[in-house]
């Protein structure tokens, strides 16, 4: 599928583009260069926020710590370490995964997108923009994971209903911003519905 650049204004979830072709993403400035710190064969190679990276880390290290401490991308958060809270959610080949429970060796040759790489071409991802418009975050610590989980869901299912959202998203927000999350998601799915009806997509 060729990349299709859609205007942000119509609120189509654009990350489907990124998933398949790995276009350069705007937010990953802190890690562009390939690191070469160890023996060949020890390195884990993958695409991170649109750039090829090669990390010298043990294959069984959770992706979370490779991202935070080796790649220097601290937007992905540590919350529980056992995949229970979702604060560490990233996209692996476009699907939401909990990076604290994903060995970095499993992502070799694959495409990882973190919160830093979600924005594209200088424009925030529609979910990020909706999070600002609806003033969703409070402490904000869980919101990287929340945004990654919900952006993956909306990409798969643009017309997600409230019930589907509740059934699909199990991330914890201790501040309790769920009402705002629902409102922000509803604003996106309404836009998606409208597009379907008018045949814009």
């Amino acid at each position: 599928m060729p990349p299709i650049e859609l205007p942000v204004a119509n609120l189509t979830i654009v990350s489907c583009v990124r998933r398949n072709v790995g276009v350069a993403c705007g937010g990953s400035a802190s890690f562009h260069e390939t690191r070469n710190l160890g023996e060949a064969g020890d390195m884990i190679d993958f695409t991170l926020n649109g750039s090829s990276v090669s990390l010298d880390v043990p294959a069984d290290m959770p992706l979370l710590w490779a991202l935070r401490e080796t790649a220097g991308l601290t937007g992905t958060k540590f919350g529980c370490g056992i995949g229970a809270c979702g604060a560490c959610t990233v996209h692996l080949d476009g699907a939401a995964v909990r990076s604290c429970s994903t060995p970095v060796g499993n992502v070799a040759g694959r495409t990882v997108t973190t919160i830093e790489g979600l924005a594209s071409g200088g424009a925030l991802h529609p979910v990020q923009q909706a999070w600002i418009d609806h003033q969703v975050p409070q402490c904000g610590y869980c919101q990287s994971g929340m945004i990654m989980a919900i952006s993956a869901l909306l990409e798969r299912r643009p017309g997600t209903t409230d019930d589907q959202l509740a059934a699909s998203i199990t991330n914890i927000c201790r501040c309790g911003t769920y009402e705002r999350i629902r409102g922000a998601v509803a604003s996106l799915t309404v836009a998606a519905d409208a597009e379907e009806e008018t045949g814009d997509v």
């Binding site: 937010g27 220097g72 601290t74 003033q135 975050p137 904000g140 919101q143």
Partner: peptide
Amino acid sequence: QDRADIPGKVVGEAQYGMDVVRPDMLY
């Protein structure tokens, strides 16, 4: 009024205690 801290929190730039990195830092 919008809160000033929110834009940084939706792009992963907000720095929490967990995110501190110092030169030569150990864990």
